[in-house]
């Protein structure tokens, strides 16, 4: 073994150990526990069973899974759609404005996540400021409900995940060569065509990263639907939390988690695999 190789291994070892201990092992544990029996005391039983997996066929789950998917996809779509013009503006504006917008993007992280959701609860409250303004403008019925709806969940989810879309897209937009847009206009493209056919393909690595950064946590979200959503806006994350905290049924929670994980990772792995096989641009988006 060459010293170079040895040095590489030494350099990789810490992160490899970390990932193995805190990502790979827990993931495998989750997958394994899904095949275990529940211990009535809230722990993991010793016997193996398929009963937990079979219980996923519960007719209430498809609706919740479907809602989880569309809420997450809608969150992702809105975040990306808002972030693209934002990132474009940030990349093209002057240094001062850029820094100001960057601070605005990151600032919410300095406040506790729960507090921020509480802030939204008071804003959307039946006597909250948003409701009052909408009623005063005649845009909402005084008896209508803002809080505890799917709309509220979507709004707060978009709010919460937006920075995770802005940052990677901005990172790509900053590196984009804006003369390409002039070249496109020069060749007869309208602004919309230039954006669709030159700018967006040019920042697709950032968009792809943003989709992952928003979609994955959004699929597992449970605090936001719990706090601002109603009973009709539960997501799969809420069910997992209920299994853990209320039912003390860890195998059932693990089975749900595993299903969610496979659902998220399956298409992604397939996509990456297809890309790699497609060849031409393979490796450029190794995420």
């Amino acid at each position: 073994m060459s010293t170079r190789k040895l040095r590489e291994i030494c350099a990789t070892a810490p992160s490899l150990v970390w990932l193995t201990a805190f990502l790979l092992v827990p993931t495998l544990m989750v997958l394994t526990f899904a095949f275990k029996k529940a211990d009535p005391m809230g722990g993991i039983g010793t016997e193996w069973t398929f009963a937990t997996l079979r219980s996923l066929a519960n007719p209430s789950y498809p609706a919740i899974i479907w809602r989880t998917i569309w809420q997450s996809l809608a969150t992702t779509a809105i975040c990306v759609a808002v972030s693209i013009p934002m990132a474009y503006y940030m990349a093209r504006t002057g240094e001062r404005t850029r820094r100001f917008l960057m601070v605005l993007t990151i600032l919410p992280f300095w406040t506790c996540f729960i507090l921020r959701v509480f802030a939204w609860m008071s804003l959307l409250h039946p006597h909250g400021i948003v409701k009052n303004i909408l009623v005063a403008l005649g845009m909402a019925d005084p008896s209508s409900q803002l809080l505890y709806t799917s709309g509220a969940v979507l709004l707060v989810m978009v709010y919460n995940h937006l920075p995770f879309a802005i940052l990677p897209i901005y990172a790509s937009a900053e590196k984009f060569d804006y003369q390409l847009l002039e070249a496109a206009a020069d060749l007869g493209a309208t602004r919309a065509t230039a954006v669709m056919r030159v700018f967006i393909p040019g920042i697709k690595a950032g968009i792809f990263a943003a989709i992952l950064m928003v979609l994955i946590p959004a699929l597992g979200e449970y605090v936001i639907p719990d706090m601002v959503g109603g009973p009709a806006s539960e997501m799969i994350g809420n069910k997992i939390a209920q299994r853990v905290q209320n039912d003390r049924n860890l195998p059932h929670a693990c089975a749900l988690s595993a299903a969610l994980m496979l659902f998220v990772m399956g298409p992604m792995v397939a996509y990456l695999f297809a890309r790699r096989k497609g060849g031409k641009e393979g490796g450029r988006f190794s995420i």
Binding site: Q179, L180, E182, A183, D186, L187, V198, K204
Partner: peptide, 13 residues
């Protein structure tokens, strides 16, 4: 009118 840019500005994708 069409332009040949100094750094060519070819669409990389």
């Amino acid at each position: 009118v069409n332009t040949v840019f100094q750094n060519y500005a070819l669409f990389p994708h």
